[in-house]
């Protein structure tokens, strides 16, 4: 029996993104073509038990590609990575706010998961990425502009909720995520601070 398209879509929604991507799209060409409808991927809920993150990342990328920029809600709990977030911001027009090129983004795996992005004009934006997905940023501010240097180049967040930004002005700035105040500015690098990482209470930076 041929199932009407609407009925199939209802079943796909009940199956959820993971089952659909893992198996349903391999059933036949008709199913696969229905599954490529961006409207089915407005919401990508990849709720999972946290034991298969490698595959989830691949599947999630495919789902984001299927959404063709129409993504509105996404749940990437347990497997969010910077790469994946960059892929989301690259392939969706839903997070809008930056007036300059986005240089870096970081995923904050907190009770309320966040995405923080920095642009070439020194703008720092905080986005809520739990459903319901908001298209505008939660908060935004800028580092002090300097005509000689260009904006944020790297981002990382420590466990005590401090945000570190690596800048074109060769400094690393520490911000409080609670009230966006500048806690301190670290100097030493001779060039753009292009990468930052926090591990075991130590901040590593590269330029």
């Amino acid at each position: 029996m041929d199932l009407p398209r609407d009925v199939l879509c209802t079943i796909f929604q009940k199956l959820g993104a993971i089952e659909t991507l893992m198996r349903a799209q391999h059933v036949c060409s008709v199913w696969r073509s229905i599954l490529k409808d961006p409207l089915l991927w407005h919401t990508i809920d990849m709720s999972n038990s946290g034991d298969m993150d490698f595959q989830l990342g691949i599947m999630c990328r495919r789902a984001i590609n299927y959404s063709c920029g129409h993504l509105l809600h996404i749940n990437i709990k347990n497997f969010g990575t910077d790469d994946l977030l960059r892929h989301i911001t690259d392939s969706t027009n839903s997070l809008q706010g930056h007036e300059n090129k986005i240089m870096a983004s970081v995923y904050v795996d907190a009770e309320e998961p966040l995405c923080i992005s920095g642009d070439s004009g020194g703008g720092i934006f905080i986005w809520e990425i739990a459903a319901p997905f908001r298209q505008d940023p939660l908060r935004k501010w800028s580092e002090k502009k300097d005509w000689r240097f260009s904006g944020i180049h790297s981002l990382t967040v420590s466990k005590n909720r401090s945000l570190y930004t690596g800048s074109g002005d060769r400094t690393i700035k520490v911000w409080s995520l609670k009230d966006e105040t500048l806690i301190c500015t670290m100097t030493g690098h001779k060039y753009v601070v292009s990468t930052l990482a926090v591990c075991d209470k130590v901040l590593y930076s590269g330029s």
């Binding site: 009925v7 079943i11 009940k14 199956l15 089952e19 198996r23």
Partner: peptide, 14 residues
């Protein structure tokens, strides 16, 4: 019924 069928198909082979 769609939920029931989805549950039936979950973790089953293609």
């Amino acid at each position: 019924i769609a939920t029931a069928i989805a549950n039936l198909l979950e973790k089953k082979s293609v």
